[in-house]
Design a protein around this nucleic acid. Structure first.
Lengths: 248, 248
DNA sequence: CGCAACTGCTGATGACATAAACAGTTTAGG
DNA sequence: CCTAAACTGTTTATGTCATCAGCAGTTGCG
């Protein structure tokens, strides 16, 4: 048992190293043997497309391999395992990096807003991205770093220190991911039935949740036109502005 | 195929109904037959304990059942499926509801801060909670609603409208979950190796990520004593304060 | 040329969720 | 009181999945 654990840890380190090499394309390609039919990138893109179409659960080694007309095990020649495949999927989808060229220089609010919008757009286009990046310690690929870099750059005109810029960045992806989660939830088909049942339940137990009942009475859950991402972003930016004004 | 789909949708509606009934304990219990050895609640608690100890992946029907000395299939007499079990686990962990009794009435900043802290504490105590509640449309159980109710109540002194109180609430759980994710990442064992490899990689590609490099030079990633949850919360609360001041 | 480094493939393994069918246990209702 | 219905937990089976081992064919370096 103890030995098993040790072995596992060493494996993990190797996996880490291998995974990073894969993400950064830093592996010498072989010269011998037959020409490979695939590449890690093409596999990842196919897997991402599959996830776009049928959800992350539909992405199994067999399904992805079948898309190329090869057996499941063939993929293992390109990718160490499913974990790494998912990491590559994330990278492939983040490849279209943030483009903040159109933003007036020095206007950090505009820059951050644009960054956030673009990031949210990616999450919206690929609902599985949220789950794929949840929980697991992310290995940072070049594309992820480009996004991070762009956000930090956008924040530079604030004059905030490095640590604070980083913290604001964390706040921002948090916002985006949170927004994505809410979007994903809304997208599910059973929505109407869900609303009905929940509403019913709420009416039945109104007494137990007075504040909630009041909020509902004020229309808290009625869909209004306003963009929830906008709301959160404005709150956060106002908060940052206050921090900047305080002269940190 | 079409028929299959239709069937599945109907099943989903039934599942929804059954799941809610389970969460709210609204099911007539039977009189015939042998006395049940278990209850959904006890199962959920055992499963949650298992997840606490070994992670969410360790929670399989067999493992949970083994903890009671019964066969895996026995659990299906109490819980429709694994999905519902996870929902019950979430509820069971959220049972120790928020307690805002010690907060001076009318001080919404203090109340919201306390709510956020307590919520974060639950997420910290049960790292799997984040994954368990990610993605999937949550069926709202009574405990989840209690948390929601408490947050909305804490926000009432702001004078904000129902819809805005709700939006602020969304911002707050977003913050908590975001914080939890970062905590979870930090908790992994391979941390040191991860830092080393990532740092190496970053040094090698510094030119590609100028803003990131600058931020790092300013110590953006050095651990300082400050609480990241606190930082985000203060930013958000400042933003809300600005909104309140604007007299919405 | 010949072997080493590759390729992709088949088959096996073990974990998992869950369906189906069965055997024992209560208790409501005649 | 007795029986059948409503339950209980169990064993067995199915299908899916990731992944390991071993094989047969392919290619280019020495």
């Amino acid at each position: 048992m103890a030995g098993r654990n040790k072995e596992k840890e060493q494996d993990k380190v190797r996996d880490l190293r291998a995974g990073l090499a894969l993400l950064w394309g830093e592996q010498e390609q072989p010269t011998r043997g037959p020409k490979p039919k695939l590449t890690p990138l093409r596999i990842a893109e196919a897997a991402a497309a599959l996830a776009d179409a049928e959800g992350l659960d539909a992405v199994s080694m067999s399904r992805v391999a079948a898309g190329f007309g090869v057996s499941a095990m063939a993929l293992y020649r390109y990718v160490p395992g499913k974990t790494e495949l998912v990491e590559l999927m994330v990278e492939s989808v983040l490849a279209e990096g943030p483009d903040l060229a159109g933003v007036p220089a020095g206007d950090w609010r505009a820059a951050v807003t644009e960054w956030t919008r673009q990031c949210a757009r990616v999450y919206a286009a690929h609902p599985w991205l949220l789950t794929a990046t949840a929980m697991r310690r992310q290995l940072l690929g070049p594309c992820q770093l480009r996004w991070l870099d762009a956000a930090l750059a956008a924040l530079e005109p604030t004059g905030l220190g490095g640590a604070q810029r980083h913290r604001v960045f964390l706040l921002l992806i948090g916002l985006v991911r949170n927004h994505a989660q809410q979007r994903n939830e809304r997208e599910e088909e059973q929505e109407r039935e869900w609303d009905r049942l929940t509403g019913e339940l709420l009416a039945r137990h109104a007494a137990r949740f007075p504040a909630l009942t009041r909020a509902i009475a004020e229309g808290a859950f009625d869909p209004d036109g306003t963009d929830p991402l906008r709301f959160g972003l404005d709150r956060i930016l106002d908060g940052v502005e206050a921090l900047v004004a305080a002269g940190a």
